[in-house]
Design a protein around this nucleic acid. Structure first.
Lengths: 153, 153
DNA sequence: AGTCATCGATTGACGTGTAAACTAAACGCC
DNA sequence: GGCGTTTAGTTTACACGTCAATCGATGACT
């Protein structure tokens, strides 16, 4: 009976009403647990998960990006980006620059300070990836990714 | 090349540095998408996901519960529960009652109004479960649960 | 009995996610 | 040129989630 584990974790009395429900709750719970772990790691560097995410996106792009494009890649609702950028700007992690051709768009640029911070974090972040997922075999990881993509699709 | 899908979704230029990272990001993304769907459903009934969760726990238990026990089952940090209960109480979904033997603990009880609301929501919630996960076969669902439990463990 | 540690719950400060309404710039089209 | 629409970004209001600090009630120990 492998299906008892989540039930036990939730101290649930009745079994799950369907495998769909069980998989869903497993997903939510695993995600929650992992996010906590990452949150704690990021906090050691005075960043939140979202802030780290923004910086990663900017580094990956390699050049300044408009606000909206960042928001899209984060699947984040637009208004939230403003405050996020505000706080990063206050910490000198990014800088805003108004585009001259289209004065509606604001370009966000990552600073040297942020670059250095990210570099310092790369090791620990990768370690955590390995720690959270490393005990799955390579084929299990591929299968997990496949199932999640199928679920999303 | 099945691994291209998430990369495309994130408009990422470089491939993932490891299967661990890819699985992790797939997890985060799938979770996010599903939470949005549920959030939208709950909002139609003027509830948030957390509030619904509290009510489900209370209904499942079948009798009043102390605050702390609810918090534990939600994996939620304790202080957040207070406000959550506050809002539910304001909507007459739960009621607080101080325990007489140990005056530190506060028992939370679900109201008839909440019971009726939950009953009305059961159908739609189950439908959404099916919609989100129903296109996976039974054995895929079991495998997904197994992998997630293993990842957590 | 008196003091100290612990426990259940709460409060306050901060960052974030969501929706709705708004500003300002750019575009489209006559 | 002028008018409406679209677009990028912001503000505001509210619900969380997290941490640190608090408060009253209980328990434990001497």
């Amino acid at each position: 009976m492998t299906s008892g584990r989540l039930q036990r974790e939730l101290k649930k009395k009745k079994p799950f009403s369907s495998p769909e429900q069980e998989a869903l709750l497993n997903l939510l719970r695993t995600n929650d647990q992992f996010q906590n772990r990452f949150g704690r790691l990021f906090r050691q560097f005075d960043l939140t998960a979202s802030q780290y995410n923004v910086l990663r996106i900017l580094r990956g792009e390699g050049k300044p990006m408009p606000c909206l494009e960042i928001a899209e890649r984060m699947i984040q609702v637009v208004p939230a980006i403003t405050g996020l950028i505000d706080r990063l700007e206050k910490q000198n992690m990014v800088s805003r620059r108004r585009c001259t051709e289209d004065r509606r768009v604001v370009f966000i640029e990552i600073t040297k300070k942020a670059h250095a911070l990210l570099k310092k974090m790369d090791g620990p972040v990768n370690d955590l990836h390995k720690q959270l997922m490393g005990h799955l075999t390579r084929s299990e990881l591929k299968e997990l990714s496949r199932l999640l993509e199928k679920a999303r699709g």
